[in-house]
Design a protein around this nucleic acid. Structure first.
Lengths: 199, 199
DNA sequence: TTGAAAGGCTACCCGCAGGTAGCCGCGTTC
DNA sequence: GAACGCGGCTACCTGCGGGTAGCCTTTCAA
């Protein structure tokens, strides 16, 4: 029980470091943020961070990878669920858009700072991204097979749709005109339209 | 005449520095590339670069801004030309895609390293980008007015289309299956489909 | 042949920030 | 109440890289 609680606190501290790191990396960039900055924001000092992360780049990887996993998970689970290709594509794209918008800062950091990741971390993430593309492409191909979608080039379409939605991290403002769910819905509509699915 | 030639040589040197900087910033990132690296690649030394650029960030701005100008120019000139909204949108999107793919490295560097630009350079670029969005949105609105396009939310559509095409810098491989013009054409097709234009 | 200017190089400075060694205080246990 | 250990801090090291001062070489004009 005591051990259990100690672990919870450890996890909580780790999480707070990540939160603050995301905020600062997002605002000032990875190299524009020092570990002292992050520590100061938390009211602690640099060595504190080193008891939870081995290095600055490990911190970076820890805030990128889970977010990419969430994106894949959203699309994969929707693609795997029941229903017509159209229903599943809508669900997949809405879910994906929600991850992008909820984790906007993490996504932005990942795309900007990719070059700062270690080769190993990059490999792990690239594997996830390839899987993402494969899942999306298969779903599109399935729709073409059933006649639900009309797509001249499935690979290009998958990249275009993925890009259109990913890109939302650059322009979405949480305090703006549309809510996160509104934006997700509209982007999913546009994706369906792009593949010629009946609305 | 002598003066004239001297200027040409100066411009040529400046250009070579930019070329090599683009290559290295693209491969290794802005902070991952030192001025010594760039100089070495050119067979010169660091002070040589400083006779052409005041600082490392000025170099960065010099390789971002003209590319953004080209994007705006491509879309603005197409939007301004004759023809139906459909014809002009296709021309605009093809032209935009071509800029993105031709200047792939510059675009990638810009999006990644935005945070490293000076506020002034960033302002100048943001002004261009706002203009880009306005031009594209007006063109879409025009098409809606003539009945050529069907778009529930013009602003979202402009962002989605712009994003879909911009994103191509992340995945296009010049040596790949499709040529630059093929990809541009297909992306333009998808854009037209997204706005419900008759093909 | 000489002088001057342009262009580039050698050699250096120095601040910044990632990373670490070692100490100190507090809470826990016997 | 003494001893132990954990968690976090103070204080430091070090290398890297942006930026510069000043010299040397080459070229061209008089």
């Amino acid at each position: 029980m005591a051990e259990h609680m100690r672990d919870e606190i450890l996890a909580y501290k780790r999480d707070r470091i990540l939160q603050e790191a995301v905020k600062l990396f997002y605002e000032r960039g990875f190299t524009g943020t020092t570990l002292d900055d992050i520590a100061a924001e938390l009211g602690v000092t640099k060595p504190f961070i080193y008891t939870h992360f081995r290095s600055k780049v490990e911190l970076l990887a820890a805030l990128c990878q889970p977010t990419i996993e969430m994106s894949l998970e959203a699309v994969a689970s929707a693609a795997d669920s029941g229903g017509t290709p159209t229903v599943r594509l809508r669900m997949a794209m809405e879910g994906f858009a929600r991850v992008i918008l909820q984790r906007q800062a993490n996504i932005a950091i990942y795309f900007r700072e990719e070059k700062n990741l270690t080769p190993e971390a990059l490999d792990a993430i690239n594997t996830l991204r390839k899987k993402f593309d494969r899942v999306l492409s298969s779903l599109l191909r399935e729709g073409v097979a059933t006649g639900a979608f009309t797509i001249p080039d499935v690979n290009i379409a998958a990249l275009a749709i993925g890009g259109m939605i990913s890109w939302a991290y650059t322009w979405h403002r949480p305090e703006g005109r549309l809510t996160l769910d509104d934006v997700s819905g509209r982007l999913a509509d546009l994706a369906l339209k792009m593949v010629g699915a009946a609305v």
